Amino acid sequence: MTIVRFALAGAAALACAGAAQAQDFQPKAQGQWMLNVRATQVSPDAGDPIVTAAGVATGLRAEVKDDVMPTIGLTRFLTDNIAVEVIAGTTHHKVKAQGPGTDVVVHETWVLPPVVSLQYHFAPQARVSPYVGAGVNYMIFYSGEDKNGFRVDLDDGFGYALQAGVDIAVQGPWSANLDVKKVFFETDATINGGALKSKVKLDPWVVSAGFGYKF
């Protein structure tokens, strides 16, 4: 979380400096593209029970750790107010089995969660331009590595996302960006060939801060 807070502070400081030094900025407009480069923290909201193949509770739960990575977002303005954004980035997560007297890493995996969202920008001509969005994502798990004698399989699949953010114009085509997404996604985790299993609601918060360029 420290990295994201630092990025948020930096983005806000640069936006304030730009506002103080210059009043010329490029507003959002139909036909534009915007490229955003961000520092992004992905924080899964897991903690679901691990059960046996017969559905008997084990007392353990599946926990998935956070990660921070750079991401890229590309936005196309269909009108001054309406835009489509695609984000791409990949994060690395540890999967742990936790419970009374147990706290063990069972798997590590890379995750590619591209999100395509339709956005509404409330004040495209203003320096401070908030927006909301909604879209779909496809969660891809790859380069997984089993740990401590466990074998874990995670199912890829579709989810959906809600989004809110703000662009703060700095100068010319440059802007600072703050963005929050809530992704709703559930995966089936199969452990040791099905001896254990868990339906894991990842439902991550995706919190980003960075800079954008219009062209």
Rank of each mutant, 00 (worst) to 15 (best):
P100I: 03
F122S: 12
T102V: 15
H92Q: 12
M139H: 01
V64W: 06
D45N: 14
T58S: 11
T40D: 01
D67F: 07
H92S: 14
P49L: 07
K96A: 11
E63V: 15
A57V: 05
P114Y: 01
V42A: 13
I87M: 15
A88E: 12
E63M: 14
V132C: 06
I82E: 04
M69K: 13
N137W: 08
A88F: 15
D45Q: 15
I82C: 08
A54S: 14
R127H: 10
T109V: 15
P44W: 02
L118I: 07
V64G: 01
M69S: 15
L60G: 04
P49E: 06
L118G: 11
D67V: 10
G101I: 02
G101F: 13
P49F: 05
Q98F: 02
A54R: 11
E85S: 08
E85P: 03
L118Q: 02
Q119F: 00
G73R: 00
T71F: 11
P124V: 08
V95K: 01
V95D: 08
T52D: 04
L112Q: 02
G89Q: 08
G101L: 14
R61W: 10
E85G: 00
R76C: 09
Q41D: 03
T90P: 07
P114A: 03
P113S: 04
A46D: 01
M139F: 05
L60A: 10
D80N: 13
V104W: 04
G99F: 05
A54H: 09
F122H: 06
D80G: 09
S43A: 11
M69F: 12
E85Y: 00
T75I: 09
D67W: 04
Y142G: 09
T40I: 00
D103H: 09
A97H: 07
Q119T: 03
V136Q: 01
V84C: 11
P49R: 07
P100M: 01
L74P: 05
A88K: 06
D80F: 05
E108Q: 12
I82M: 11
A53Q: 07
A57K: 04
I87V: 15
E145Q: 10
V95T: 03
A54P: 00
A57D: 13
V111K: 00
A46F: 07
Q119K: 12
V104M: 08
T102C: 05
P49V: 08
V116N: 03
V132I: 15
D48R: 08
S143N: 13
V56D: 13
V128H: 01
H107Y: 12
A134G: 15
G59R: 08
G144L: 00
H92V: 04
F141G: 13
Q41E: 12
S43R: 08
Y142T: 06
I82G: 05
V86N: 08
S117D: 08
V86I: 14
